[in-house]
Amino acid sequence: MAEIRLKNVTKRWGDFVGVQKFDLDIADKEFLVLLGPSGCGKTTTMRMIAGLEDITDGEIWLGDRMVNKLEPKDRDISMVFQSYGLYPNMTVYENIRFPLKVRKVPKDQHDERVMKAAEMVELKDFLDRRPAALSGGQRQRVALARAIVREPTAFLMDEPLSNLDAKLRVSTRAQIKNLHHTLKTTTIYVTHDQIEAMTLADRVVVMNKGVVQQVGTPTDIYDKPANTFVAGFIGSPAMNLVDGELRDGVFEAGKVRVTGLPTTHNGKVTLGFRAEDATIVPEGGELSAPVYSMELLGDASMISFRVGGELVSIKAAKDYRAEIDEQVHAAIPAEICHLFDSKTGARLGA
């Protein structure tokens, strides 16, 4: 078990920058999630840590070893792949045992360790099947068992849940969380699903276009997004973002007018607020606009408006009803608002 340090890690293919100066210390036993849209460099970062991708620049340290030049097999990490990478010609038992076999772990330990790993992921009944005879969820658990069987320095998981159906995803997510609690092994987990990131992570790294956007606990990045990208990526629905003018603490953008913002900044800004923070009010309020559409979510009703070019959503009580094109008012108090620089997208003020 050890911490992992990335020092200015960069990956370039010709002129294309895959990962730009990734700098991060990952603590021992930490569960770190790399989050971002596809092509943002999160998988590349993980593959560089695993040794499957060359590093153009920078250093990667596992514990007190600089591993830049080490082969994947010499890094003592294990990895769960998106499509699992199971060996189709071996049984489940042989699949889980494979890392022990190639690493020349004494033979008399094999059986015990395979059984223990299989038990942790509830695979004991399937040990003599081949991967082709398993369901998606079972295959996924074989991949997990194969990763945990040899107690490595760190686990790397590359979108391990993305090939599962929604229901299975929730239960496997819980299982991974529980495994991490039991094994206490440093884990790096790549996903594009912000719910997975929020539920699993000790810390989340949000990436976009090869650049780290924000590093923080799930609460941090939810409550204090560092820029409009993070604000627009985290949360379901994502944060509402409205472009407008700020003058003396008053934000104005057509149908939206928010007063009393605690800032000295003037000029063009982007105002953000979450759908669940705003409320529908009978009259007055900071927003007044015709309803664009209304969706029933079960536990709530989602009302959306067209403001400028953007769609703004506000969560209302589950028995709230409104007709399309009906004029509705909403309260967006200054306390729930986030302000971002229009040009750079960076968060303004506190």
């Binding site: 695993a50 040794g51 499957l52 082969e71 994947p72 097999k73 990490i77 294990s78 990895m79 792949f81 998106q82 499509s83 699992y84 990478g85 199971l86 060996y87 189709p88 010609n89 494979f98 890392p99 190639v102 690493r103 991949a143 194969r146 790397l156």
Partner: peptide, 25 residues
């Protein structure tokens, strides 16, 4: 590609991954 890569992470050299994991498939 996942197949040989998981073999290499599991502790194989490139050649071992080729011989034990890829060729049987």
């Amino acid at each position: 590609k996942d197949l040989d890569e998981s073999a290499m992470v599991d502790g194989c050299t490139r050649f071992q991954a080729f011989r034990w994991v890829v060729i049987p498939v």
